[in-house]
Design a protein around this nucleic acid. Structure first.
Lengths: 232, 232
DNA sequence: GCAATAGTGTCTCTAAGACAGTATCAC
DNA sequence: GTGATACTGTCTTAGAGACACTATTGC
């Protein structure tokens, strides 16, 4: 009955990104059950009866990382509904959400005790992830790259206090480029509501100590950080 | 059983936009059945067994407008999954798609014979649409506004051949602004792969005839058309 | 010729990028 | 002092916007 309306199973999958030692990393879990047993996959879970999908994603985020989803923003990446994308059932449709996290002390083993680990995005090889998660991860990273241009999410990669150099390393890690330090500094401090100086300083290993900043109130970044003319 | 995984019903809804007499319009259908009988709603339909959601949306687009979805692009707007958003069943989740169409001869009555009509977006009043379609429409229009900045979708509002003035009216209608004619002309003709002159001319009512263009091959617009510093 | 629309030239200003130069620390 | 990192100044260039000006039609 291909023409009949039908019911499907819905899941929310998470692309949780962070920067670890200057490298863009994604949180992946090892699957314990078939199919794709032992393979890496994006964390995610099934929609429950009283939830919206955003709530499912927020709950999973808390279970996997211990982060409070109320404190960071989830960005909807997209819906993946191709028939047969999940071999378990005929129709499992997923909605992917992007979450940006500061460098966490440890890949928190999820409440469901799955082995979770951070893996550099660049090291995720073709065919390594379960289901269609490789494509979903790609779309999520693309969204993150775009968001860095027009929003202030970059501060979500940092802790509550950060230096301009740390913020620059976020852009460099996510975009895979090297930015001019002086120009970046000026641009970021001039942008309206992007960063606010706390007055504090952090000593560097050897060199002038850097001023500390916290995230400003703005969500939109004006003027945007243009990723100038290459790649696209 | 709020903790149990469950099945839901999936629909695809369409935000079909066009420009009619310089005004941004959306295709709406009048509901024939309860709930919201007689109210206006976005066209849409249920996912069928062998389809991806994009295919559901493309099929609905053809049924409602006669347009071949193969010739124009559908843009995913987002997923709407709040419990109770559809009073008919506990869980109906929809994915909204944006389609941009040239000015069609007539609001084609859909195959399912629903009364379909174009309504100026600005005239859609609060509480006028069924379900949560008002919010979905808003998100779709927002996406269209953003896409005009960075992609070449504006040409999809026009027919196969168009003048620069027509293209400018697209931007003016969607953004609700007035643009400088000379600067727009230069910018658009300079942009890489945005418009290609066909060599033809179209006589104007009184004045110099305008050159005709067709859409160039590019999908991304470089440099982007920045909607400068207001609104946001 | 006039009116109207299409299209070009040119000026100003803002912002990006390159990069020289200054400031503040450890040693 | 040296060496390292943080930050500022300044020059060049590209693009946005304002707007004067030219071009081509109908009448």
């Amino acid at each position: 009955m291909s023409r009949a309306r039908q019911t499907v199973t819905l899941t929310a999958d998470l692309i949780i990104l962070t920067i670890r030692e200057g490298v863009l990393c994604v949180l992946l879990v090892e699957r314990e059950n078939e199919p794709f047993r032992g393979r890496l996959a994006l964390p995610g879970g099934f929609l429950r009866g009283d939830e919206a999908l955003e709530e499912t994603a927020a709950r999973e985020l808390g279970e996997e990382t211990g982060l409070d989803a109320g404190e960071l923003t989830l960005h909807q990446v997209g819906v993946y509904s191709a028939p047969g994308r999940d071999p378990r059932r005929p129709r499992v449709v997923t909605c992917a959400y992007l979450a940006v996290a500061p460098d966490l002390p440890i890949p928190v083993a999820g409440t469901d005790a799955r082995a979770a680990r951070w893996l550099p995005v660049a090291e995720v090889g073709a065919g390594q992830l379960a289901f269609d998660h490789e494509r979903i991860l790609g779309d999520g990273v693309d969204l993150a790259r775009t968001l860095l241009q027009f929003s202030t999410v970059a501060t979500a990669f940092c802790g509550p206090e950060f230096t301009i150099a740390e913020l620059r390393e976020v852009y460099e890690a996510v975009w895979g480029v090297v930015l001019d330090k002086p120009n970046f500094h000026r641009k970021v401090t001039d942008a309206d509501g992007f960063v606010v100086p706390t007055g504090g300083k952090r000593p560097s290993v050897n060199g002038r100590p850097s001023a500390l900043y916290r995230a400003g109130g703005a969500a939109e970044l004006a003027p945007p950080m243009m990723r100038s003319r290459f790649g696209a």
